[in-house]
Write a protein that binds this DNA or RNA. Sequence first.
DNA 1: TAGTCGTGGCT
DNA 2: TAGCCAAGACT
Length: 367
Amino acid sequence: MDSSTIINIQKKLLIWYRSNARSLPWRGLKDPYLIWISEVMLQQTQVETVIPYFHRWIDRFPDIKSVAYAPIDEILKAWEGLGYYSRARNIKKTAEIILSNHVGVIPSRPIDLIKLPGIGDYIAGAIASIGFGLDEPALDANGIRVISRLYDFHGLVNKVANKKILKENLRTLLPNGCAGDFNQAIMDLGSMVCLSANPDCESCPIQRECMAFSRNTQKDLPVGKARTKKPHFNVVAGIFEKNGKVLIGKRPTNGLLGGMWEFPGGKIEEGEDHNTALKRELEEELGVNIKLRDAFGEYKHAYTHFSVTVFTYFVEIVEGKPSAKVAEKIEWVDIRSLNDFPMGKVDRSISNDLQEKLDHASSVDSV
DNA sequence: TAGTCGTGGCT
DNA sequence: TAGCCAAGACT
């Protein structure tokens, strides 16, 4: 791409951005801490979902110190519903590192940022360019789509080497001193005009410079890899209910829903019925013999790589005292206070339904 | 490298 | 409806 074409792209995109930029709560903020938080929340998550979480977060955690000193359960509670909970755990880790190793100041250069937990190539570029005004590229999924089309690039974008090529292409496009706005212009263009399924090329400010448009290949780009079909699992979970309290466990720190609370249970193995599976799981997890009582609800949920149906039952201890054999810890909790414990979607649904059942029972009693 | 890690919205 | 996708990072 020659230098006059590059200058045209810079001018047209920045002008377009001035009048079409989305108005977002973190736009225009000068505090790199807030830029960092917004970028982490936006990872694999749509803008509309993030906005209310962002407001609540900066209200509760206005600065790095408040994050570093907060209990992990409070951090996870603020993150509940956003998913990818390692993001929240990594924010806390990084806040602690910044306090102890960087005198409380976020580093500005990508080379330093990328060493921090939860900050990868994209977020490092975003903080450097948007938060600190450095001339650094920030290439996200929108950018990958826009740049792939702009250069009519047909390499597989899952490949690290190909992503690097796209990033260097973006770097050559950056106007001096305006990298932050330019990066955001690319992202906004990708989210509003250069759409994945139906690109609106007629309203694109850089249609004339787009090599994919001139060859009519925009709908084939970017080239990605097809995902494999995801399996389904049937799961059982037990509700130990006693005197208005229930037993919940805190999942191990790492892995799926790490650090979140749940009702104990697990996968139904091949050939098992619900009764056998639940007795086995609760023996393994808590060291107790149980008896199944009434069935409660059935819960379906789709994760990224598999889906589940969770069958829940009220259970009763026949023998033994529950201990945390798998969970980080277990706790008997008042049903009314279940909301204080961070949970994933399924367990939150169970928890809400339990509270509703309790409300209904007490309203019947009072009649 | 390729699999893992949540959830909501859209088609 | 079942699958795809969204301001990615980590192992």
